[in-house]
Simulated scan of single mutants.
Amino acid sequence: MKTSLAALFATTSVFAASSAMAAPEVVVSVKPIHSLVAAVMEGVAVPKLIVEGAASPHTFTMKPSNARSLEKADVIFWVGENLETFLEKPLDALGKKATVVALSEAPGVEKLKLREGGTFESHDHSDEDHDDHAGHDHAKHDHAKHDHEKQAGHDDHDHEGFDMHLWLDPSNAKAMVKEIQARLIKADPEHVAIYNRNAAELEKKIDALDQEIRSALAPVRAKPLVVFHDAYQYFEHHYDINVVGSITVSPETVPGAERLSEIHKKLASLNAVCVFAEPQFQPKLIDVVTAGTKAKSGTLDPEGATLKEGPELYFNLMRNMSKSLVDCLDKDA
């Protein structure tokens, strides 16, 4: 009897080990999409994250451990080369056996072009004054029909100037979930039932979150605000909030004294209620541009820098942004 039980235990252990080994090695670039991938993979495996902690994809430097993860990966999810520029060469050199999925190219994802002019700084980063019209260009991108599945070579990705903070629109998040689901099923058909169930539940949670945030922002959405860099137009576009300008378009470019002086002057003319910093980028600049004005200051964290990674991060990120906006814009809060 003891021998039979031992044999049964050994067989079960081997089966469990082989089942665990069947799960693909998945690597994800940044926290918000890692959260979506982790939610779809829950109960199967935990994907590896490259840009950890409070790091930003705008200023990230690869580590040896990141390189090893890319070499071992079966599937790599990233937003695309216009966000994680640090990944372009490593993907070509290290991710040769992996399926590389740029979620910016997922079917159903709406991409908005980067803005310039008005109170948004031009993309040549000059300090010259621009037309003061604060209208928002929400130009939509027509997606070309092409094969989205790439191995490490992906040089036909577009190089146009699109805002890559796609996850801030819940509709985009749902489109990315569908792509994540499809790619995981293709890489790991043994767990198709789990991926399908998780993706369906995740889409329902995103719908509920969307309604919750829309209701919370309704009383303050018309109040004008200025952000640190122009990373919010998906959130702005989806919820119709009134972002009238940014201190800098690109966080890699530190605004000069002339630019800060320009923003300081415009805060009064724009009647901006709040100016928002970000955790990773020089919050003291906000103090400079708001000094002597009636504008209050707050913090927005569009990349989840201050949040713990995992399936709940996306929901915490979106709720925190909504709460920060309401807290600052509601003068009675």
Rank of each mutant, 00 (worst) to 15 (best):
K178R: 11
S29A: 15
A55H: 03
D207C: 01
A272R: 03
K31W: 08
A333F: 12
V26R: 01
A291Y: 07
P255A: 02
I206C: 07
E116T: 05
A333R: 11
H238A: 13
L87T: 02
V28R: 01
V273E: 11
D163K: 05
A106H: 01
D210G: 01
F77Q: 07
A16D: 07
A231I: 05
L83T: 06
A187R: 00
P224F: 00
E128P: 09
V220K: 01
P57L: 01
A6Q: 12
T11Y: 04
L83C: 05
C328K: 04
T248K: 03
G256K: 02
E212T: 12
S126Y: 00
F60N: 13
E42R: 06
G118E: 05
A305F: 00
S246W: 01
V40R: 02
L270Y: 13
R115E: 14
E121K: 05
L325P: 03
L49C: 02
V244N: 02
G95R: 03
H136A: 14
K266W: 01
V51W: 00
K113A: 13
Y239K: 10
I263C: 02
H165D: 14
A7V: 13
P107K: 06
L166F: 04
D124K: 04
P32G: 02
E25Y: 06
D156Q: 10
S261T: 15
V192N: 05
L307H: 01
S65G: 08
D155I: 01
K186I: 12
